[in-house]
């Protein structure tokens, strides 16, 4: 493939949305992982603890989101 072809292919990746509408909820996982890693990389003095600390925060955020989702679902069910 020519360099121009590579550039066109790379540009094409950013000019149209990816067809992932049916999997949108799974896209939250890399987002939460990214937030956990960056937050802990800033917070921790000793970066050797980063993998476990980031994983711990990742699980905490997911659990809190599940809890919030369950609570909102319950409110909607009770209201309807």
């Amino acid at each position: 493939m020519t360099p121009a072809g590579v550039v066109t292919l790379a540009a094409g990746l950013f000019t149209a949305p990816l067809p992932l509408e049916h999997y949108w909820l799974w896209l939250l996982l890399p987002l939460v992982a990214g937030v956990s890693i960056v937050y802990k990389a800033i917070k921790l003095d000793d970066l050797t603890k980063l993998p476990w600390q980031a994983f711990y925060l990742f699980v905490q955020i997911l659990l809190f989101m599940l809890l919030a989702a369950a609570l909102i679902w319950l409110i909607v069910e009770l209201a309807s």
């Binding site: 990746l13 000019t15 990816l18 890399p30 987002l31 990214g34 990389a41 970066l47």
Partner: peptide, 22 residues
């Protein structure tokens, strides 16, 4: 720290652009 923060933030930003386009 710089590499970890930089790569992660750029992956999120580039991922967002790839998901929805410009």
């Amino acid at each position: 720290r710089g590499w970890i923060i930089g790569v992660t933030i750029l992956c999120l930003w580039g991922g967002g652009l790839a998901l929805g386009g410009v």
